[in-house]
């Protein structure tokens, strides 16, 4: 474990807590893409298959349980909670995430480090996570009103993977054999997808104005 990975995990945890706070306290999911939340639930479900078979550490197991529990409960809230579901803008959140899932599955079957069920699922979860934010970014472009919590959520979600990139550089420099192009490239693509959001978010924060994404 290194400081980059730990801060990356904490940033990721913060993003999930910010989202749960928004949904649980103000009972609203306005501006949040259910498609992205479903993709993240799929990411954790396919990445943490070995949660009970391969024990890494107490920290690792606890964090996996937290990410699984929070991602599925957010999907549940947005789909079934009688008040929260009313604030979900179904008409705007129309991204067909199946068009993201299928190519990721095909790519994971072709490009992976080992053709085993667990490894292909792990690789699939990496590819899906790389593109999972797309429905959310599309929704932000459409709905002009990006409230603070949503902006903070997306920012933290993007920042965690940027910190992971520093973690991979650190591990590459300090550990022999630590070379994993698939992880690195999908992590880089994921972070780059946030590039323009980061640009507008930091500018709006510096100029102390509301976050507006160009149409």
């Amino acid at each position: 474990m290194n400081i980059f990975r730990l801060s990356g995990d904490m940033t990721h945890l913060m993003s999930v807590i910010v989202l749960l706070l928004k949904i649980h306290t103000i009972k609203s999911c306005a501006g949040i893409s259910l498609k992205t939340q479903e993709l993240y639930a799929l990411v954790f479900a396919t990445r943490y298959l070995d949660i009970f078979t391969d024990f890494v550490s107490v920290y690792n197991t606890i964090m996996k349980l937290i990410f699984l529990a929070t991602s599925f409960s957010i999907v549940w809230y947005m789909r079934h909670h009688k008040i929260v579901r009313r604030s979900y803008d179904k008409e705007q959140d129309t991204f067909r995430h199946l068009f993201l899932i299928l190519p990721c599955l095909i790519l994971a079957l072709v490009v992976n480090e080992k053709f085993t069920f667990k490894e292909v699922m792990w690789t699939f979860s990496l590819y899906v996570e790389a593109v999972a934010i797309l429905p959310q970014l599309v929704l932000l472009q459409r709905t002009k009103n990006i409230d603070n919590l949503t902006g903070q959520y997306v920012f933290l979600l993007g920042a965690y993977r940027a910190l992971y990139i520093l973690n991979w550089i650190y591990r590459y420099l300090t550990e022999k054999h630590f070379v994993h192009w698939i992880t690195w490239i999908s992590g880089l693509v994921q972070t780059l997808l946030y590039a323009d959001f980061f640009y507008y978010y930091i500018n709006s924060w510096k100029n102390n104005v509301r976050l507006q994404l160009p149409a």
């Binding site: 990975r5 995990d9 990721h12 070995d50 391969d54 890494v56 550490s57 690792n60 964090m63 996996k64 990410f67 480090e113 080992k114 490894e119 792990w122 992971y164 973690n167 591990r171 550990e175 054999h177 630590f178 994993h180 992880t183």
Partner: peptide
């Protein structure tokens, strides 16, 4: 083994 060293990440 080597393959699993990065499966220690979340």
């Amino acid at each position: 083994d080597i393959m699993d060293d990065y499966h220690d990440e979340l």
